[in-house]
Amino acid sequence: MRDFAANPAAGDPRYVLKLAVEGGFNGIVLQIGLAEKFHWEYAGEIPLILKLNGKTDIPSDAEALSPLHASVAEAVRLGADAVGYTMYVGTPAAGADFAQYREVREQARLLGMPLVVWAYPRGAAIEGKGGRDSFYAVDYAARVASELGADVVKVNFPHPEKQDQVPAAYRRPIDSQDAIAAVVRSANRTLLLVSGGARAGDAEMLDKARQSIRAGATGLIFGRNVWQREHEESLRLVGQLQRILAGAG
């Protein structure tokens, strides 16, 4: 798998779980197969968020739908602390997406399980209005997740410079600090996590993390940017992120 090419050791889920424990992470997100086979070795050391849906990278995102392959009841069985759901905002499949999301939300409420929504703008309509990480798209997705009952929403960092064909309200001079602050406000009482995104230069990535925390984001959620590098380098990066979260970075 291409995700592991930069650091083949990370292809072993135990490597990532151990790294999460060593780095003092608040939790780890796993699909059900890996949660069943590996998380039990670290139960009590690292909280589990069970991801309930997912799709491969093979088909186009034009009509993206992330189908369910696990249930809230299975998350309870595995001792998870929360469940995760990917919602593709803006695609023609939104009707089916919202319908299966409603089932997840109802079961999460019934079983007392917090619901974390990956709010990802996707589809031709989004690409024709600034793109999936434009300020408009990210802001809209955060609001949709909040209005549909997410307890926590995960978004990508917004790019306010991407203004091609976006609504008039978003075609104005605004810097990235003000943009991420607006996204936090759009999420209102839904806690907001900012993704590390694709592998990027450390200085740029850390600056986005600082801006997110200054804006009032609840926290950060990092994957490839951490484990797609050598072990000691990963821990150095995690240390920098922890200082930012503590307000000292």
Rank of each mutant, 00 (worst) to 15 (best):
R2I: 11
D3Y: 13
N7T: 02
P8Y: 15
R14A: 12
R14L: 10
V16M: 06
K18P: 01
L19V: 05
L19I: 07
L19F: 02
V21A: 05
E22G: 00
G24K: 03
F25P: 03
N26W: 06
I28F: 07
V29I: 10
I32Y: 05
F38D: 10
H39Q: 11
W40D: 15
E41Y: 13
Y42R: 02
G44N: 09
E45V: 00
P47A: 05
L48P: 04
N53M: 05
K55P: 00
T56S: 15
I58Q: 12
P59E: 08
A64P: 01
L65P: 00
V83R: 00
M87Q: 03
M87C: 07
V89M: 04
V89T: 08
V89F: 03
P92R: 01
F98G: 01
Q100Y: 03
Q100G: 01
Q100C: 07
Y101F: 15
R102I: 03
M113W: 00
P114C: 06
L115H: 04
V116F: 10
P121M: 08
R122C: 07
A125W: 00
E127C: 05
E127T: 08
E127H: 11
G128D: 14
D133Q: 13
S134T: 05
V138E: 11
V138N: 09
A142R: 11
A142H: 09
V144I: 15
L148T: 14
V152I: 15
V152E: 05
V155A: 11
F157P: 07
F157K: 12
H159T: 09
H159D: 13
E161R: 06
E161S: 08
E161C: 02
K162R: 12
K162A: 13
D164H: 09
P167Y: 00
P167C: 00
A168L: 14
A169D: 12
P173W: 14
S176N: 05
A179W: 12
I180F: 11
A182R: 14
A182Q: 13
V183C: 08
G197L: 09
A200W: 09
G201E: 14
E204L: 13
M205K: 13
K208P: 04
A209K: 01
A215F: 10
G216V: 06
T218L: 10
G219A: 12
F222W: 13
F222C: 08
R224S: 06
V226E: 04
W227D: 05
R229E: 07
R229Q: 13
R229P: 08
S234A: 15
R236Q: 12
V238A: 11
Q242Y: 04
G247Y: 11
